[in-house]
Each structure stands twice: as C-alpha cells, then as structure tokens.
C-alpha cells in the first residue's frame, strides 16, 4: 500500500510499486486530467507537482511519492481561478487541449521559481510538446500570469 496526498486529500493505492505515478493517478485515483503522451519523459503531457516540483509522472514510480504531496491540474484550483488557468482562458491557448494539463503544471512549477520570466527563460524552462502548435499563446499566457 502506497500512501500520499493528492490535491490535498490522502490517498492509498495498492499497486505494484513500479507502477508509474501517472497511471496510479489516472486509473487508481480516477483523475484523468493528467495525460499520457509518450510514457518516456519526453513530452510533458503527464506533468504534475511532487512536493511543489514539476515532474513527469510517467517516469516516477508511484512508490517514490510515498508520504509526499502530489498536485494535478484538477488541484490547481476548483473553479479555474488559478492565474495560469485565467491567463490560458484569456489567451485562448488550447486547441485539442491534450497537452494543456501538462503545460499548465509545467508553467506553474516554473513560475514558482521565476516570477518575472523573459521569453528566453520561458523557452528554456518549458520543454513540453504541443503538436497543435499553441506555443505562441502559451508564451504570452505565462507572461501574463507572471504579472497578474
């Protein structure tokens, strides 16, 4: 049994300790906002926060978060009021939307470390993939959220 906090709530899952956190969140905890894109830490669609750090949950065995605090897109706010969610809506960022949970979590992790990012800072920090090509609006929304 592996226990951790998920969006503030205590959860315990009885699974293979090697099972990636991504699948524990999606299948065992039933939160499907966190997406599977590559399974190899390459795309960022599965990004969540573990004790405040943005991590690619497809590459984190669930046993590693024992006793830790995990935040997913569902936990950013319960009413889309997080400044990044607001900026994402304002800048109409998503297209298909599949990468966006991971983008938001990567951006939230990044803004926690850099409150006044330049374009170059954003470019260096956000290495998630968006096949729809929403990058221009992602950059603009992160900058807007930083100053919000």
């Amino acid at each position: 049994m592996i226990s951790f906090r998920l969006n503030g709530e205590p959860v315990s899952v009885d699974v293979d300790p090697e099972k990636p956190l991504l699948w524990a969140i999606r299948e065992n905890a039933g939160l499907t906002g966190t997406k599977f894109g590559c399974g190899k830490g390459l795309c960022g669609a599965c990004t969540v926060h573990v004790d405040g750090d943005a991590q690619r949950s497809c590459s984190v065995p669930v046993s590693e978060v024992e006793g830790k605090s995990v935040l997913t897109v569902e936990g950013l706010s319960n009413d889309r009021s997080h400044k990044l969610q607001q900026a994402w809506i304002e800048h109409a960022v998503p297209q298909c939307g599949y990468c966006q949970s991971g983008m938001l979590m990567a951006a939230a992790g990044f803004l926690a470390t850099n409150t006044d990012p330049s374009d170059a800072d954003i470019d260096a920090a956000i290495t998630n993939i968006c096949r729809c090509g929403t990058y221009h609006r992602i950059r603009a929304a992160i900058k807007a959220a930083a100053t919000a």
Binding site: T32, G33, V73, E74, R80, Q85, I89, Q100
Partner: peptide, 21 residues
C-alpha cells in the same frame, strides 16, 4: 470569439477517449 471548449481544457475536465471509464 473564444472557443467554447477552452474552459474544459484548462482544468482537466475535457473527456478524451483515453479518459472514458
């Protein structure tokens, strides 16, 4: 105009086939 599906795509609530249970 802003697309109507945008809000559901910033909070993880949009349902893709991969999410259907």
């Amino acid at each position: 105009q802003k697309r109507l599906d945008i809000p559901s795509k910033v909070d993880g609530s949009a349902i893709f086939a991969v999410d259907v249970v």
